[in-house]
Nucleic acid binder design. Structure first.
Lengths: 249, 249
DNA sequence: CTTATGGCTTGACTCTCGTCAAAGCGGAAT
DNA sequence: ATTCCGCTTTGACGAGAGTCAAGCCATAAG
C-alpha cells in the first residue's frame, strides 16, 4: 500500500507560516511571479468541524481541497446505505479529484477531527496550468498518484486476509505520519473501528479482534484509539509477500 | 460499477477509417489546425498479439496507450505472485495513466486477444494540452474518470457478495459492449474464469459456481466463454441496492 | 484417429470472517 | 457523581467463500 497523494517532504517543511497553502500542496520550483499568480487563485483556508461534510456526493464540483490540518475520510455510498470508505486523508493530501470527470462530486468528504482545508478552484488551476507547465505536470502526477493508490487498495481488498489488511493499514498510517514529522510508532486513530473496517472491507468486530490478536502477539499495543507499534517489523513480515512488487518509498 | 475511461459515443461513430486514433480517443471540438497537431503527435497503431505484454510494471513510462481494437487486461502483482487484475479494457479505453506519477508503469498490460493500440507519447500530449485547452481538460477528465471507476471497484470489492460482484461485472461488460455497437446480451468473454475472479476478488471456482447458479435460475446462458443475458433485469435487481447511488449512465 | 493440455465444472470439506448478542468502558451531559 | 450513549471487546454460532480433488470438455498436438 502506498501513500495518499502526498506532497514531498521538502515542500512540507516550508509550510505553516501563513494561511495560503501554496507551500504545502504545490510544487516547488516556481518563481516569484508564478507564486503570486498561485496565491491569487488559492482561496483562504476554511475550517471544518469534526463530523461536518466538506462536500457531498452529487454536489456540483468546483474545487479541489487540500487538507491543511486535521483528518478526513472520503466515502461512496450505495443506494441501500452501505458505505465504502475510499480513503483517509491527512495534511497535504488532496480531495475531490473524482469530481472532475462529471463536474459532480463522486464521494462524500467528512472531517474526522476539526480541520482546515485549502480550496483550489479547479478551472482556475487548469488555466494556470497552461501558463505554468510545472504546475500542470504536477497536477497530472497527483491524479496519477491517486490512481496508483486506488490500485493498491484494490490489491488489498481483492487478495489480502484480514490480518494482512490491518497490518498494511497500520504501516501505511505509520509511514504517512512519520513523513509529516509525527511519531511513526505511537499514534491516535482518528477513525472508528467501523470506519477502518469499511475501508478495509471488514466488519468492525473483525477489526477489533485482529487488533487484539496483534496485541496478544506483543506486536502492537492497543488502548482504544491509542496505538503503539511495538514490533513493526513483524507487521512488515506479515505483509512482505502480499504487497505490490514495485511498492514505492 | 461504471464504465472504464470511455469515449463518448458520438466520437466513436466517427472512428475507424484510418490508422490515427484521434477520432477514437480524443475529444471532438478541435479545429482543423488542432487536429493536425494531434496527428503529428499520435504514433501509428501497434499490433499486440494475444498473450503479449504491451508494457510491464516497473518499465519506464513514456506513453499512454489507447485500445484501438481488441481486448486487454491490466494487473498488479504482489511479491509472492498473487495477481490482481485491475481492469479489462476495450476499444477506446486508455491504459498507462498510473505511470505518470513516477515515470514508471505501475501495472502490466496484457492483450487478451490480438489487438491494436495507439501510442500517445505523454510529454507531447502534455505540451499540446497547453496549446489546446479542451485537450488538456479532456485529459483531466479521463484521469478523473479512472479514479471514479477505481472507487466503484473498491465499493464492489469491499461490500458486495459473490453474486452481486458477478452480476455487476456482467452488466458492466454488457453496457460497454452495447455502447460500442455490439450486442448487449450475447457476447464472448475474452478472459478466463481465473482472471474474472482476480478482478472480482473471488476464486475461479466461485466464479464458475456463481455463473452456474445464474444459469440455473434462467437468468443467463453459459456455454464456456459464450454468455447470453436472458433476464438482465434480474441481474439488475440483484445489484439494485448495492450500486453507487450516483451511478452514471 | 488418439492423446495431451489447459480451462472449466462440480462435489466435499474447511476455515475465515460475518452475524448476533451481551457486556464493558469511557466520555459527555446533566 | 450519575446516567446515558456510542464505541469497543469478546464469545458463540453460522454462512459464504476458499481449498482440495476428481472428472469433464474442447481444442491443439502428435
Amino acid at each position: 500500500m502506498t501513500d495518499q497523494t502526498t506532497i514531498p517532504l521538502h515542500a512540507l517543511k516550508l509550510s505553516c507560516s501563513n494561511c495560503s497553502l501554496r507551500e504545502l500542496c504545490l510544487p516547488v520550483g516556481l518563481n516569484r511571479e508564478e507564486l503570486s499568480q498561485l496565491d491569487a487563485v488559492i482561496r483562504q483556508s476554511r475550517r471544518i468541524k469534526r463530523g461536518e461534510y466538506l462536500f457531498r456526493s452529487g454536489e456540483g464540483f468546483k474545487s479541489l481541497y487540500a487538507v491543511r490540518t486535521g483528518f478526513f475520510k472520503t466515502c461512496v455510498s450505495s443506494q441501500d446505505g452501505r458505505e465504502q470508505v475510499t480513503g483517509f486523508l491527512m495534511s497535504g493530501e488532496l480531495m475531490g479529484l473524482d469530481g472532475i470527470s462529471s463536474n459532480i462530486h463522486g464521494c462524500d468528504a467528512i472531517a474526522l477531527e476539526d480541520s482546515e482545508v485549502c480550496e483550489l478552484p479547479f478551472s482556475r488551476m487548469e488555466t494556470l496550468g497552461r501558463d505554468i507547465p510545472s504546475l500542470q505536470h504536477h497536477f497530472f502526477r497527483l491524479m496519477s498518484r491517486e490512481i496508483v493508490r486506488d490500485q493498491n487498495v484494490m490489491l488489498l481488498l481483492g487478495n489480502m486476509k484480514a490480518e494482512e489488511r490491518l497490518a498494511a493499514f497500520l504501516l501505511n498510517l505509520s509511514q504517512r505520519l512519520s513523513v509529516r514529522g509525527f511519531a511513526a510508532n505511537d499514534f491516535i486513530l482518528r477513525m472508528s473501528r467501523e470506519e477502518i473496517g469499511s475501508f478495509l472491507g471488514l466488519k468492525l468486530e473483525t477489526v477489533s479482534r485482529t487488533l487484539s490478536k496483534f496485541q496478544q502477539h506483543g506486536w502492537i499495543s492497543v488502548d482504544h484509539k491509542h496505538i503503539q507499534l511495538i514490533k513493526p517489523e513483524q507487521l512488515k513480515e506479515l505483509i512482505s509477500g502480499c504487497i505490490h512488487s514495485n511498492a514505492v518509498e
